[in-house]
């Protein structure tokens, strides 16, 4: 009986994320660190792809998307991401730390964890970011666009 209850508690444990696309990548951020979201029609709005210095094949085509407002120790900032943007609960058992060599050579502190959903070759990799560790780039556009949630 107690084993069943423990099992249920384990199954229920998870982390609430906001999951979205940036180009060909699927990324996620803790839901608690996303302050708001709005549509954007401005292709010049600061983009998460630029902050992550994504290679061209993974970077988004010039599509319109959503502006997410992230919590940050230096103050909230807004970044353009691609749709769909969804709330999502990831079971903690599916959350994986970065592989050791990747962690040692990773140039972006904000890349914190990984998760694979599905089975190869149709699996999807989810890159879990820590919004507090996102590189901060203050631009004029950053001040202009404020999500209205």
């Amino acid at each position: 009986m107690s084993r069943t209850m423990d099992q249920q508690a384990t199954d229920a444990s998870g982390i609430d994320l906001v999951r979205f696309r940036v180009g060909t990548l699927t990324l996620a951020v803790e839901r608690a660190k996303v302050l708001g979201m709005c549509e954007t029609q401005d292709p010049l709005a600061p983009s998460l792809a630029d902050l992550l210095q994504m290679q061209e094949s993974a970077a988004p085509a010039a599509s319109l998307g959503r502006l997410l407002e992230f919590d940050h120790p230096d103050g909230p900032h807004s970044l353009r991401v691609d749709e769909p943007v969804i709330h999502w609960r990831l079971p903690t058992s599916d959350l994986r730390p970065l592989p050791p060599l990747l962690a040692a050579r990773q140039g972006l502190a904000c890349v914190r964890a990984l998760a694979c959903v599905g089975h190869p070759p149709d699996d999807t990799l989810i890159i879990v970011l820590d919004a507090w560790l996102l590189p901060r780039r203050v631009t004029a556009a950053d001040d202009v666009h404020s999500p209205d949630d």
């Binding site: 210095q53 990773q106 972006l108 890349v111 699996d123």
Partner: peptide
């Protein structure tokens, strides 16, 4: 399928899913 992860040097191509384990 090798999944690209941003922030890695070019010699680190990405990660693969090996029966649920994620490996560089």
């Amino acid at each position: 399928t090798i999944h690209y992860v941003p922030g890695c040097p070019p010699s680190l191509e990405g990660v693969i899913n090996v029966r649920g384990d994620i490996t560089s």
